[in-house]
Measured scan of single mutants.
Amino acid sequence: SKTSNTIRVFLPNKQRTVVNVRNGMSLHDCLMKALKVRG
């Protein structure tokens, strides 16, 4: 089974995003990807 960790990230202006960290990806990469999608 694939394991994925879901991390809630609290952003300024009362924004919130959820990042799924996959195996083999660093938290930083996942964060940058999530913020790019939002931006």
Rank of each mutant, 00 (worst) to 15 (best):
S1H: 14
N5S: 15
V37G: 03
M32I: 09
M32A: 09
T3A: 15
N23K: 09
N23T: 10
S1L: 11
K36E: 06
K36Q: 13
V19I: 12
N20K: 14
R22P: 14
G39R: 07
K14I: 07
M32R: 05
R8G: 02
R16S: 06
T17N: 02
V21E: 00
K36R: 10
K14R: 09
G39E: 06
N13K: 08
V37M: 13
I7M: 09
T17R: 05
F10H: 14
R38S: 02
P12M: 05
M25K: 13
R16L: 06
A34E: 02
R38L: 02
N20E: 05
N20S: 08
L31T: 05
I7T: 03
L27M: 13
R22G: 09
V37L: 10
K33G: 02
M32L: 13
L35V: 06
I7P: 03
A34V: 03
T6K: 07
D29N: 13
N20H: 12
S4R: 14
S1I: 07
S1P: 14
L27K: 03
S1Q: 15
K2R: 10
N5K: 09
I7S: 01
L11V: 04
L31A: 05
K36N: 15
N23D: 12
C30W: 00
G39D: 14
G24C: 13
M32K: 08
N20T: 08
K33Q: 04
D29V: 09
V19D: 00
M25E: 03
V9T: 10
V18G: 02
R16H: 12
V19F: 13
Q15E: 15
H28P: 01
V37W: 07
V18E: 03
M32S: 05
T17S: 10
N20D: 06
T17F: 05
I7L: 11
R8H: 06
M25I: 10
V21S: 05
Q15K: 03
G24R: 12
N5G: 05
V18F: 03
V21I: 05
T3I: 11
Q15H: 01
R22H: 12
C30I: 07
N13S: 11
R38Q: 05
N13H: 06
V19L: 11
L31R: 00
K2G: 15
D29G: 13
V21G: 14
S1R: 13
R22L: 14
L35R: 01
N13I: 06
N23H: 09
M25R: 12
K14M: 09
N5T: 09
K33R: 09
A34T: 04
D29A: 12
M25L: 10
C30R: 02
K2V: 03
R22C: 11
T17A: 06
N23I: 07
V19G: 01
K14E: 08
H28L: 09
S26H: 05
S4D: 15
Q15R: 01
S4V: 05
V21A: 10
G24S: 14
K2T: 08
K36M: 15
V9A: 12
L27Q: 00
S4T: 15
F10S: 12
K2N: 13
K33E: 01
R16C: 06
L31P: 00
G24V: 14
T6P: 06
K33D: 03
L27V: 15
T6V: 15
D29R: 05
T17P: 00
R38C: 00
